[in-house]
Amino acid sequence: MKFGVVVFPGSNCDYDAYFIMKKILGVETTFLFHKDTSLKDCNAVILPGGFSYGDYLRTGSIARFSPIMNEVIKFANNGGLVLGICNGFQILCESNLLPGVLMKNENLRFRCFDVNLKVLNNQTPFTKECGPGEILTIPIAHGEGNYFANKETIKELEDNDQIVFKYCNEYGEITNDSNPNGSVMNIAGVCNQRKNVFGLMPHPERCSDRTLGNTDGLKIFKSIINNFN
């Protein structure tokens, strides 16, 4: 199998994602440039974190119209696996591949620390390595991670088990204090109805190398790989 990591002008977690897939997990991985018009036969695509196009206009709004995104959208609509991390999540929302939108953090602060995440759905292609209700510790680093969707959309997300991760405390309780950015219902990650597109604000690629003392992020990447074994 082969992974593709998309590089937009302003992506800055592209090499981290590439490193984890290629060096830690030993999977064939290639970069996909924003001007590319082919996914180079990749079986799964990662939209990495960063500040594509300087976050101008709205986060992800300009990247969404990059030539490579036409291919990513086609791929996703055909059932291909697409993971969006942080800015990648913002781009997936702007592309309408995921519902909702990510706004400026309610407290206006850039939040950068480890958070606890409760796994609400461990049956997606991205979370099968997680236990039901497992608590993962994964770092966040964002200024615009305040997830918002209207009531009808939230109800649909709940009814279809599309809310994958919620911010929680160390005991797995979904509390206001554990919500770092004001996201509605503490939502940290959602997938589409078909479960083949997943976006999250936390950075699993920053906790997937034993040298860094935490490998919770590996569960997401291993889950993706296991879909092809």
Binding site: L57, S61, F148
Partner: peptide, 8 residues
């Protein structure tokens, strides 16, 4: 298409 986000 681009300038406004219909969600917000």
């Amino acid at each position: 298409d681009l300038l406004a986000n219909p969600h917000l």
